[in-house]
Design a protein around this nucleic acid. Structure first.
Length: 821
RNA sequence: GCGAGAGUGGCGGAAUUGGCAGACGCGCCAGCCUUAGGAGCUGGUGCCCGAAAGGGUGUGGGGGUUCGAGUCCCCCCUCUCGCACCA
């Protein structure tokens, strides 16, 4: 019975069959040789799911289904990143509790993901706002604390005035809050940190283990970690007992250091001017610097400001006096907050020196000219010959770096050193909707850890959970805050900050492997059975946040013996974002296409194919601005063509015969299997679809030329299998309509016969002087001599030879022969 | 400034890695068909000259290597992303 393709009449039925039948359930202990852990970044269940959100599902699920059909045991879980500011802000706006908002959205998201045809194993679903999950955030925090990796310190931290909380470095983008785009300010607060800098070297060096990462992603992480090698040099400061250390990447320029600069907020600055007439001047200077926003300070045109402190340091190699300044171009939180200034060889130092009339001394001379320290305006930061540098004169600067460091070490003036841009991870937030930090502050004992057997420290219900800007909303839950000290039994208070939600996402991929464990975060054997992930898909925007944090957690857990592998995600696919009008889809901007509307109109298969056919998975998609109605035809038109082709062959017998036309079509099927398999392996869905379109075009042409049903049926069965990962519903429906009793998604991926897939005829191109002059159809195994004969006997070719003989003949069998005259 | 990536028809994008540039699709043009639909089918469609056959030209610009360059090398331009007063 023929009928028209209508997604509405088929999708719901198959969705229920797959989910009810637990088609995608994975075992705890797969065959190690056959396991494939396909992970996608778990979503943040904000209110609206738009086509940008489902694009990742289209890509990820197509990969997972393809791998499953290849006979692997696939684990494909999904959970929800449920804690965090956006949910809390949305709840405040609506006057409801964050939990209510979050639970509702999780239900909506799960339903949409199911409708979209995602093959997730829902038995492993997790939600990070459940005590059974965040309990283990707390447990891990305690273990980190015991290892010295969690600590509290008073420090300048980024503060978002709108969200009223501190943020990690990674959440500040160009001086603005990542979430609400408000300009952030610095605040001095006592905050919890994870000592990720202890792992900086391993995080950098182990990037080499992530062989399935793009160069782009690795570069982002390398830049963020920002390791530089150099030396620490000790300077004696007037009136300061201890030597002050600076970090430099250019110890070879030490002889040219003519002044010394401290960051404005450096404590030593205060000490140096204490009881002098500079004291109030420094206070005024600091006020001015603080008044500048971070945006002003980052601006390229920003002129340097400084102030002489009236004291001197001594250059340890020349013995000369160096005036000590504070300068706003020196950062407190990089290196030691103090620098030796070498104006002749560092542009920033030179700018500062020219502005304030400080001495310039050339110690590296370029090969081809003489630098004039009195007039130069461009610092010479390249290699050259050392001059004015005592025993090192005449040596190439780049070659002497090692020798200088050795000399400093031998004389007790300094040592080899390296420095990182990466800062420790600030994890405390002054907000409600997060994991409570399991620490108790006792008047007598100080910081006391919540005992393991008291976990989870359950997030209390707080009616008024709005952030105040003065500490955390949890402080208002008096019954919860006031506790007895676990150590001395005396009066104590719970820590009222909550954890950054990136703590939750740093280990969730292990929890999927043992989601209901109530005596540990997860069982080691279960983790070892599936880890490391075989494929991780997600956006590149997590390059320097989540993807560094999770690697850090993995390494700490490895050091604790909890996991086996040094890296959790050796293979990473960063899909492109979906934009509209060139801008990222967002509700506030009003440029979204809602997933539910698109699913209603197009159906899941069409939406999946539209998204996959747009272009390469890694590339951004710019959805047409007309929105959900942008695409003139609702159904992906080619799916109608596929449907009709299938309908025509339902009754056909399997015996296709082997006439010339049949053999030709069969060859095409096998060539297509070969290419499409490769396309899937390279996540090149757009070209895979193109190849399948060609196959369908061939089938129609074959029919138009009088070809019969049996051969088309053979083609259709292969076509449906190859299309099944990308368009699961229509292929399942037609598979059954062809008379099969079992699911197409449990079929094996089609194999190609190499003999059939190989070309029977190839086009031989004949070039004369590099230009194509004739083409001939020849056998793939044609001999060179025959190619030459054919080429020279071609009329077209001869007309270009002008009766002469080619002076040179290049033959690349079987495709090309090039004649030169 | 440092680092990474990209530049191909009106549009999205292909090109077994040095071998017929523009696959596949959108759009557009012409025709067919009809239970006039958000249809379907057939053909055409880089640009220039030509009625056509055919010829020329063509992958941001300029040079180079090569029988042959979208692909490799050098210089330049433009764009995107990341880091950025990081010592």
């Amino acid at each position: 019975m023929e009928r028209e393709y209508d997604h509405k009449s088929i999708e719901d039925r198959w969705m229920k069959e797959w989910i009810g039948g637990k088609y995608w359930a994975a075992p705890d202990f797969p065959d190690p040789a056959k396991k494939r852990y396909m992970l996608t970044m778990y979503p943040y269940p904000s209110g609206d799911m738009h086509v940008g959100h489902v694009e990742i599902f289209a890509i990820h699920d197509s990969i997972a289904r393809f791998v499953r059909m290849q006979g692997y045991e696939v684990l494909n879980p999904l959970g929800f990143d449920a804690f965090g500011l956006p949910a809390e802000n949305a709840a405040i706006k609506r006057g409801i509790q964050p939990r209510e908002w979050t639970d509702r959205n999780i239900a909506i998201w799960r339903a949409s993901a199911e409708r979209f045809g995602c093959s997730f194993d829902w038995d492993r679903m997790l939600s990070t706002c459940e005590p059974e999950y965040y309990r283990w955030n707390q447990w891990l925090f305690l273990r980190f604390y015991e290892r010295g990796l969690a600590y509290r310190k008073e420090a300048a931290a980024w503060w978002c005035p709108k969200d009223k909380t501190v943020l990690a470095n990674e959440q500040v983008i160009a001086g603005r809050c990542e979430l609400c785009d408000t300009v952030v300010v610095k605040r001095y607060l006592s905050q919890w940190f994870f000592r990720i800098t202890d792992y900086a070297d391993r995080l950098l060096d182990d990037l080499a283990l992530n062989t399935g990462w793009s160069e782009r992603l690795k570069t982002l992480q390398r830049n963020w970690i920002g390791r530089s090698f150099g030396a620490e040099v000790d300077f004696k400061l007037e009136g300061i007992a201890e030597p002050v250390t600076v970090f430099t990447t250019r110890p070879d320029t030490l002889w040219g250091a003519t002044f010394f600069v401290l960051a404005p907020e450096h404590p030593l600055a205060e000490e140096l001017v204490a009881d002098t007439d500079k004291e109030s001047e420094l206070a005024e200077f600091r006020k001015q610097v603080e008044a500048m926003t971070e945006i002003d300070r980052l601006s390229l045109e920003h002129p340097k400001h400084g102030m002489f402190l009236g004291k001197y340091a001594m250059n340890p190699v020349t013995g000369e006096k160096m005036p000590i300044w504070v300068g706003d171009y020196v950062l407190m939180d990089y290196g030691t907050g103090a620098i030796m200034a070498v104006p002749a060889h560092d542009q920033r130092d030179l700018d500062f020196a020219r502005q304030y009339g400080l001495p310039v001394r050339v110690v590296i001379s370029p090969e081809d000219r003489q630098l004039d320290p009195m007039t130069m305006t461009e610092a010479w930061s390249h290699d050259g010959v050392m001059v004015n540098s005592g025993d090192f004169n005449g040596i190439s600067a780049s070659e002497s770096v090692e020798a200088v460091v050795a000399w400093l070490e031998a004389n007790g003036l300094g040592r080899r050193a390296k420095n990182f841009r990466l800062r420790d991870w600030l994890i405390s937030r002054q907000r409600y909707w997060g994991t409570p930090i399991p620490v108790i502050h006792c008047e007598r004992c100080g910081e006391v850890l919540a005992p393991d057997d008291q976990l989870p420290v359950v997030l209390p219900e707080v009616v008024d959970f709005k952030p105040t800007g003065e500490g955390s909303p949890l402080a208002t839950a008096h019954d919860w805050v006031n506790v007895d000290c676990p150590q001395c039994g005396g009066r104590a208070r719970r820590d009222t900050d909550t954890m950054d939600t990136f703590v939750d996402s740093s280990w969730y991929f292990h929890r999927y492997l043992d989601p209901h464990n109530d005596h540990a975060p997860f069982d080691r054997a279960k983790s070892d059975a599936w880890m490391p992930t075989d494929q991780y898909t997600g956006g590149i925007e997590h390059a320097v946040g989540h993807l560094i944090y999770a690697r850090f957690f993995q390494k700490v857990m490895m050091d604790m013996g909890m996991v086996r592998d040094p890296e959790p995600y050796p293979n990473m696919l960063n899909h492109g974002v979906v934009t509209m009008g060139g801008k990222k889809m967002s509700k506030s901007r009003g440029n979204i296409v809602e997933a539910s509307a698109a699913l209603d109109l197009y159906g899941a298969d069409s939406l999946r194919l539209y998204l996959l056919f747009f272009g390469p998975a890694e590339q951004a998609i710019d959805w047409p601005e007309e929105g959900v109605t942008a695409i003139g035809r609702v159904t992906f038109p080619w799916l109608q063509r596929v449907w009709r082709l299938c309908e025509q062959v339902q009754e056909a017998a399997a015996d296709a015969g082997d006439g010339a036309a049949e053999t030709e079509l069969r060859r095409h099927i096998h060539r297509t299997i070969k290419i499409v398999t490769k396309d899937y392996q390279g996540f090149s869905f757009n070209t895979a679809i193109a190849r399948l379109m060609e196959l369908v075009n061939h089938a129609y042409r074959y029919q138009a030329e009088g070809g019969g049903g049996p051969m088309v049926r053979e083609l259709v069965e292969a076509l449906l299998k190859m299309l099944a990962p990308m368009a699961p519903y229509i292929t399942e429906e037609q598979w059954h309509r062809l008379g099969h009793e079992t699911s197409i998604h449990k079929e094996m991926w089609p194999e190609f016969d190499p003999a059939l897939a190989s070309e029977q005829e190839v086009t031989m191109v004949i070039q004369v002087n590099g230009k194509v002059r004739d083409t001939l159809s020849v056998a793939p195994d044609i001999a060179e001599s025959e190619m030459k004969e054919l080429a020279l006997s071609s009329d077209k070719v001869r007309s270009y030879l002008d009766g002469g003989e080619p002076s040179k003949i290049i033959i690349k069998p079987p495709k090309l022969i090039s004649l030169v005259v």
